[in-house]
Computed example of a mutant assay.
Amino acid sequence: MPNQYQYVKVFAPASVANVSCGFDVMGLALDHPGDEVVARRTEEPGIQITRVTGENGVLPTSVSENTAGVAVRALLGHLGSDVGIELEVHKKMPLGSGLGSSAASSVGAVVAVNRLLGLPCTSDELLTFAAEGERVACGTPHLDNVAPSLFGGFVFIRSREPQDVIGLDCSKPLFATVVHPQIEIRTEDTRKILRRNIPLQKAVTQWGNIGGLVAGLLKGDYELISRSMQDVIIEPIRSVLIPSFAEVKEAALDAGALGSGISGSGPSIFALSRDNETATAVGKVMQHEYEEIGLDNEVYISPINKEGPRILEEVQL
Rank of each mutant, 00 (worst) to 15 (best):
K92Q: 14
T278L: 05
I157G: 01
P94V: 03
E291L: 01
G22T: 13
N305M: 10
A68Q: 08
G100T: 10
N66T: 04
L127E: 10
G208S: 13
V214W: 04
F151K: 09
L75V: 07
G212W: 06
S171I: 12
A203Y: 14
I47F: 04
S226A: 15
S106A: 15
M229S: 01
L126V: 05
R310V: 08
L117P: 05
S20Y: 04
I262R: 01
L312E: 03
C170A: 15
Q163H: 00
E43L: 14
E125K: 02
A112S: 09
V111H: 05
I262E: 01
P236E: 12
D169I: 07
I198V: 15
I225S: 00
T278V: 13
T50A: 05
S265N: 15
V16K: 00
E188T: 01
R186Q: 13
L75G: 04
T42R: 13
V136T: 15
A147F: 08
K192P: 01
E86M: 06
Q6H: 13
R310K: 15
F245T: 05
S102Q: 07
G118K: 12
T278M: 06
K284V: 00
G152E: 07
R310A: 13
E44W: 01
D169T: 11
L224A: 11
G77M: 06
G294A: 03
R238M: 08
I293Y: 12
G118R: 11
A39H: 12
S302H: 08
G266E: 00
A251I: 05
D35P: 12
D144I: 00
K284A: 01
G256R: 04
L272V: 02
R196I: 04
K192V: 08
L168T: 01
I233Y: 03
C170M: 07
V285S: 00
S244K: 15
I198W: 10
V16E: 00
I85M: 04
L116M: 15
I193T: 10
L117Y: 03
D169E: 13
V285D: 00
L218D: 00
P2C: 04
T61N: 00
V110P: 03
W207A: 13
E88Y: 08
G211E: 07
G77T: 09
A112V: 12
G139T: 04
D35T: 11
S102C: 07
R186A: 14
G22N: 03
A147Y: 02
C21T: 02
E86K: 02
T205H: 12
S105K: 09
G118Y: 08
G294R: 03
G100V: 12
P33W: 11
Q201L: 11
T190W: 06
K92F: 02
V113Q: 12
T190A: 14
A12R: 12
V248E: 05
S228P: 11
V10W: 02
F129G: 03
E43P: 02
I233W: 06
I85K: 07
E235C: 03
D169N: 07
L168V: 08
D164N: 11
E298V: 00
F175W: 15
H180G: 00
G259Y: 14
